[in-house]
C-alpha cells in the first residue's frame, strides 16, 4: 500500500470515527473514493440527525452574535433614506465604503443635504425605462440608477469588499464584481459572494427626477 493510499485510509478512519477529517492535499485522483466514503457514512445509525445540544447551542449563538442584526427592523422612511443616501454619496465620494449598518443609523432631524452636496443629473428619464437600470459616473460617484415601475432609486456601484468597480449585468438584473465573484441586487443587497467575510450592502444614494432628468445627490 502506497503512502498516498495510507493517507487516504487515515482520512476515512477519521470519517468513520466521526472525527473531523484532517486536511488532505493532492487527493484529486481519490476524489471518488472519498465521495463514496462520505456517502457510506450516511448509512450509519443516527446519521443526519442533529444533536439536540448542538441545535440549542447554535440557537443561542445566533441570538448572541446576530440578534442585533436579525432582530432589527430598519423600516426606512423616505426622509431617512434621503438622509442616509445623501451621506452615502458624500462618503462614497470621499473614498470610504459604507456598511449596511449605516442605513439603520438614527435619522438626523430634517432632510439632510450634505455640506457641499448638490443634485447632479446622471441620466435622462427616457434612458431608463421601467424595470431597467443605467450606470453613471460623474467623476465623484460611480453608481446605478434603477427604474422600479416609475420610481427611481440610485445606489453606489463600488463593491463594498475591496472597492472594485461593479459591472452592470442587465440580463440578471444585478451588479457583478469582477474581482471576487460577488453580486448585488439592484436594491443594493448581496445576492451572493465568494468571500467568507460579511459583505455589506451597497450604499443607497438619494435620487430624484427634475425636469426629465434623474438627479443624484452628490458632491
Amino acid at each position: 500500500m502506497s503512502r498516498r493510499e495510507r493517507r487516504i485510509s487515515r482520512w476515512i478512519d477519521d470519517l468513520i470515527r466521526d472525527r473531523k477529517p484532517r486536511r488532505l492535499r493532492g487527493a484529486q485522483q481519490e476524489k471518488d473514493v472519498l465521495a463514496a466514503a462520505v456517502e457510506m457514512r450516511s448509512a450509519s445509525a443516527g446519521a443526519g440527525l442533529p444533536d439536540p445540544r448542538f441545535v440549542e447551542s447554535l440557537r443561542q449563538r445566533i441570538a448572541r452574535e446576530t440578534q442585533g442584526e436579525v432582530a432589527r427592523a430598519p423600516r426606512l422612511s423616505r426622509r431617512t433614506l434621503l438622509a442616509s443616501g445623501g451621506l452615502a454619496a458624500a462618503t462614497a465620494a470621499a473614498g470610504l465604503i459604507l456598511g449596511e449598518r449605516f442605513a439603520s443609523a438614527p435619522a438626523p432631524p430634517g432632510e439632510l443635504t450634505p455640506e457641499g452636496g448638490r443634485w447632479v443629473a446622471v441620466a435622462d428619464v427616457a434612458e431608463v425605462p421601467a424595470g431597467t437600470a443605467k450606470m453613471f459616473d460623474n467623476g465623484s460617484v460611480r453608481g446605478l440608477v434603477v427604474n422600479n415601475a416609475g420610481t427611481f432609486a440610485a445606489l453606489s456601484a463600488v463593491c463594498t469588499h475591496q472597492g472594485c468597480l461593479l459591472r452592470l449585468n442587465a440580463d440578471a438584473k444585478r451588479l457583478d464584481c469582477p474581482c471576487h465573484r460577488a453580486a448585488f441586487a439592484w436594491d443594493g443587497s448581496v445576492l451572493f459572494k465568494q468571500m467568507p467575510d460579511a459583505l455589506p450592502s451597497l450604499p443607497r444614494l438619494a435620487a430624484r427626477v427634475n425636469e426629465h432628468k434623474i438627479e443624484v445627490l452628490a458632491v
Binding site: D14, L15, K20, P21, R41, S42, G48, P50, D51, F54
Partner: peptide, 20 residues
C-alpha cells in the same frame, strides 16, 4: 435546522464538520 444539517451531513459524512 434539521434539513440543512442533514443535507450537510450527507455531504461531509461526519458530525463535527456538519455542525461547523
Amino acid at each position: 435546522i434539521a434539513s440543512i444539517y442533514r443535507l450537510l451531513y450527507y455531504k461531509v459524512g461526519n458530525q463535527p464538520d456538519a455542525e461547523d
